[in-house]
């Protein structure tokens, strides 16, 4: 998902009998659905895992602005341009809500940005793919934001208060993103044969990477089991992926587009769609840095950070000067 394969640092999930009294008290609060707040006692592993997860999520929002930002100047109408700008602004906002949630756990904003630039923390695999045509912007809103909503709605109930509250804000805004994407797709699919072909091409490029967003099957993963125990992961990757496929297939049918999977078929016994094998090799290669745009994305972020250094410095100097000039309060 936006946070993929988050490490918990545990080798196995502890049994209640092995826990210290503090750990047991903490787990009892989680089990009773009492939210954990910043100053509350929490196990170090919980804190570190949350920092990793929220940070990855925040970076994904920020890096996620890049493929769409590329299209602002080329949007086909003034209205589409204004909508796309509002959407990209929202992504910046989402990144900031999440950075501020992570900061409540004791990590500084600059440290998170350094970690991203140094390659110590990932962002979602999906943003390492290029947006080649205007239809890709429609597909990103429809599929990528659709997949994000699927993951983020359960996280509104997660155990850490500031993260849950950030998720609630984000989910309220995300629905606009998905709809504007689907609206672009509807317009293209009702347009000329060339426009419809462009929509079909974009769906073919983004379908499999969108399914990979949920991460590899994790029913056996110790990290996922631990995160589930802490209620910072509420549904398995495969459950979320299945929900996503089930909701998206009828939408593609409505658009008259073909999903690029020969094995995609309704399974009446399961009450779900069956679908083909995902190329996990591609997923792992992208995570390792070998996707089509990894270097470009991080390069762009580092350049923006370095180019902005003098602005950050000047603003601080200006603020200090202003404070010095102000008459001291009695």
């Amino acid at each position: 998902m936006y946070a993929q394969m988050v490490e918990t640092g545990v080798a196995r999930v502890q049994d209640v009998s092995e826990m210290s009294p503090e750990e047991r008290a903490f787990q009892a609060r989680i089990d009773a659905d009492v939210k954990i707040e910043p100053k509350d006692d929490m196990p170090e592993a919980y804190r570190r895992t949350l920092i990793r997860q929220i940070q990855q999520h925040a970076h994904s929002e920020i890096v996620g602005m890049l493929p769409e930002g590329n299209w602002i100047t080329r949007a086909p109408s003034l209205q589409r341009k204004a909508i796309l700008m509002a959407k990209v602004q929202d992504e910046a906002g989402h990144g900031l809500y999440l950075y501020c949630a992570a900061e409540t756990l004791g990590i500084s904003r600059d440290r998170m940005i350094e970690d991203l630039h140094a390659g110590k923390v990932r962002y979602s695999s999906i943003f390492n793919y290029p947006a080649l045509a205007w239809a890709d912007i429609g597909t990103i809103g429809w599929l990528v934001d659709g997949a994000a909503i699927m993951n983020q709605i359960p996280l509104c109930r997660c155990s850490y208060g500031p993260y849950a509250r950030a998720m609630i804000r984000i989910c309220k805004e995300e629905s606009f993103h998905q709809r504007q994407g689907f609206d672009i797709m509807m317009t293209l699919c009702r347009g000329t044969p060339e426009q419809k072909a462009m929509a079909q091409g974009a769906l073919e490029r983004w379908w499999w990477p969108s399914l990979m967003m949920f991460g590899p099957p994790d029913a056996q993963s110790v990290h996922s089991a631990q995160s589930a125990r802490w209620k910072i992961k509420l549904l398995s990757n495969d459950e979320l992926r299945q929900r996503f496929v089930d909701q998206t297939v009828p939408q593609a049918e409505y658009l008259g587009l073909r999903i690029p999977d020969d094995k995609l078929v309704w399974n009446a016994t399961r009450g779900h769609y069956d679908f083909g094998e995902i190329d996990w090799n591609e997923f792992h290669e992208v995570l390792k840095g070998h996707g089509p745009c990894n270097r470009e994305r991080i390069g762009t972020r580092i350049k923006a950070w370095e180019d902005g250094a003098w602005v950050r410095e000047a603003a601080l100097a200006h603020a200090r000067k202003g404070a010095a000039r102000e008459p001291q309060a009695a």
Partner: peptide, 23 residues
């Protein structure tokens, strides 16, 4: 509602407007 980084109070209010009151 949350927090923002800013060099001074005026900038904090403007940043807060952009981050927390887009709607």
């Amino acid at each position: 509602v949350g927090s923002v980084h800013a060099a001074d109070a005026g900038m904090a209010i403007r940043n807060a407007r952009d981050v927390y009151t887009r709607r």
